[in-house]
């Protein structure tokens, strides 16, 4: 599948998609979005790139093996849950810190966001594992 338009478009669209996927991941706590949707969007971005420029190019662009993304995501989610154990709470209890930023006001940061980041990474990883493997089939 070689299409110059798609190739050039994907070069610009993929970074935009990835940026939006991060935005959606972050805003998910208060508005529609979250790790699952963000992860799917990011995966779709990379799949678009792979369809336009080939799987090898997409893999090179991603740099990290999708399998490592899955492992890292699971570990991040596990770690976010385990953090509560150190303060004597049960596993996966949400812990929060309030950051006072000069212009943005109060910014709550918590382990659920870290957990969501884990979900985000796992979803990207498994989608890419499956689709890349299928696309590489000859």
């Amino acid at each position: 599948m070689t299409s110059t338009i798609l190739r050039i478009a994907s070069r610009y669209l993929t970074p935009v998609f990835l940026f939006f996927s991060l935005l959606i991941l972050y805003r998910g706590h208060n508005a529609p979005g979250g790790g699952f949707i963000g992860g799917l969007l990011a995966a779709a971005a990379l799949i678009l790139y792979a369809m336009a420029c080939g799987v090898d190019a997409a893999r090179a662009k991603l740099r990290i093996d999708p399998r490592i993304l899955v492992a890292a995501g699971l570990l991040t989610a596990l770690l976010s849950g385990a953090l509560a154990l150190f303060s004597g709470n049960s596993f996966l209890t949400g812990r929060w810190v309030m950051l006072h930023l000069p212009f943005l006001g109060e910014l709550p940061l918590g382990t659920p966001l870290l957990f969501d980041l884990g979900v985000y990474l796992v979803v990207i990883g498994i989608t890419l594992i499956m689709l890349f493997a299928l696309m590489e089939e000859d």
Binding site: N30, A31, P32, G33, G34, G35, F36, P112, L113, D116
Partner: peptide, 10 residues
């Protein structure tokens, strides 16, 4: 969190 769906999930 204001997004109840996501708060339930995470």
């Amino acid at each position: 969190g204001r997004n109840v769906v996501n708060v339930i999930l995470v």
